[in-house]
Design a protein around this nucleic acid. Sequence first.
DNA 1: ACCCTTCCTTGACTGAGTCAAATGAAGGCG
DNA 2: CGCCTTCATTTGACTCAGTCAAGGAAGGGT
Lengths: 170, 170
Amino acid sequence: MTTAPEQLRGAGLRVTEPRLAIHAALLAHPHSTAAALIDYIAANASAAGISKQGVYNVLDDLAAAGMVRRIEPAGSAARFELRVGDNHHHLVCRICGRTEDVDCAVGEAPCLVPVSNSGFVLDEAEVVWWGRCADCAALTSTLSTSRSATPVEPIDSSNGTTAPTQEARV
Amino acid sequence: MTTAPEQLRGAGLRVTEPRLAIHAALLAHPHSTAAALIDYIAANASAAGISKQGVYNVLDDLAAAGMVRRIEPAGSAARFELRVGDNHHHLVCRICGRTEDVDCAVGEAPCLVPVSNSGFVLDEAEVVWWGRCADCAALTSTLSTSRSATPVEPIDSSNGTTAPTQEARV
DNA sequence: ACCCTTCCTTGACTGAGTCAAATGAAGGCG
DNA sequence: CGCCTTCATTTGACTCAGTCAAGGAAGGGT
């Protein structure tokens, strides 16, 4: 695993404090939104004072350099993560927005191939599973599945999943 | 196939001109954004004068009644379609936003099951294939795959796909 | 035909993200 | 070591999609 400064230089980008701070913040809090990153960095002195625009610029740069992956679940602001290039997928909680990784058994993109592609030249297959996380399911077990229960902004860090081999029909 | 007024009444909703107009607009232009629907309806006299808020309300109501499905591809405003309950998926063009349906061979949701679900209670598997539509691929065949080429707002009506049986690895 | 409930309109507002111009720092070159 | 060019960042205004809240209009059961 190469270090963040090495990765930056390798991509022809300068090594700056905002970039390192955002990289570190994403390491600590995968699946954070841009707003959550701004808050987190403001609270952790090192590079406090970085501007909103700065965060967006850095995220764009890191994404363009392939160091960061941007995911945009419906109904949520964009989220960012450092796991890149392994074509994994996500579980998203409809209620609190918690996002967790699910490994891709094959590891090549696109790992799902539609039979009819209508002339599209495909470059990625994105899979999102929607549901309720364990906590929200426990809280709402007897209530409706309504998409609009008081949502929380979780800077969550839970992450681990297994790497199963699996076969599924689409 | 039941008619729109029947479906509305069946869902306990009143049959109003805005609802019928939006239903008709979606029939003519699947995968339209709310903004596109507003423009289209304003141009087609029947229910011209419907307000922006009215369109959002109607779309929410129809979605709650299960008459309309809302899809929210990353980087685009929400889109709406009348195909509902068949758990089909989508191809989306990164360049112009064109969206097309891909049938689901199994027809039950969720049709993809992650082996590790981290305690999530799942209710939907969403699959989106990203790429370039035939037109955009032709225009940009020698250029970069940049996500930000002058985007067009297509009120497109292309729709047809086949219904294959398919097996894919996730 | 009446009246109650549901629906629609108006207009202000929020939140996420973008644009553009000016300032500031990184790091290659002499 | 220090300059200078180029790349980064800040600032602040702005856009776009969508929401909120309150008042007025219309559907449809009686």
